[in-house]
Structure formats: structure tokens, C-alpha cells
Amino acid sequence: MSDYLDGNAAAGALSELFAVDLTAAIAQCNGCGQTTVFAESRLYVDAPGMIARCAGCDTVLLRVVTTPTNTYLDLRGLTYLRVPNS
């Protein structure tokens, strides 16, 4: 069974942390080097936190955990995120 959403669904959680919309940014995966729009990554939400994985190689691109007092963000699977200047 495919049990993931599109990276797009992380937009709300990420908007707590960033003023720009990261889901429309171009992301490069640390694992395989593929570059895609972050919205096209696979988002697993039926878990203790939100996990985005590369659609090409399943590397964890990003994790977000919201606790009652803090939000934890781990971006270690992303080589970069590219956002156009406004």
C-alpha cells in the first residue's frame, strides 16, 4: 500500500518556520543528487512526526516534529533548497 502524501502537504508545518514557501522550492537530495520541486517528495505523516523522502531514492530529506513546546526541524538530507528571489 502506498501510504504517503505529496511533499506539498508539509506546507502548513513549514510555514510555521519559514516565511517563504519551501514546498515550491527546488530541492537537491543528498542521497542520489536528484533535483526536484520539494512538493514532489513523498511525505509520511502516519508517524510520530512528518518525514519527507526523496521520490528517487527514499533518502530522508526532512523531518518535522511538533511537540507541545517546540518544533524540531532536520534538513540533513537536503544538499540545498533553491528559492527564487522575490
Binding site: N8, A9, G12, D21, T23, A24, V37, A39
Partner: peptide
């Protein structure tokens, strides 16, 4: 509510 969000779809 929290939004609007999502700039791709």
C-alpha cells in the same frame, strides 16, 4: 486554521 499554504499544486 493555518493558511493559505502550498505553492506547487
Amino acid at each position: 486554521i493555518r493558511g493559505p499554504v502550498g505553492g506547487w499544486f
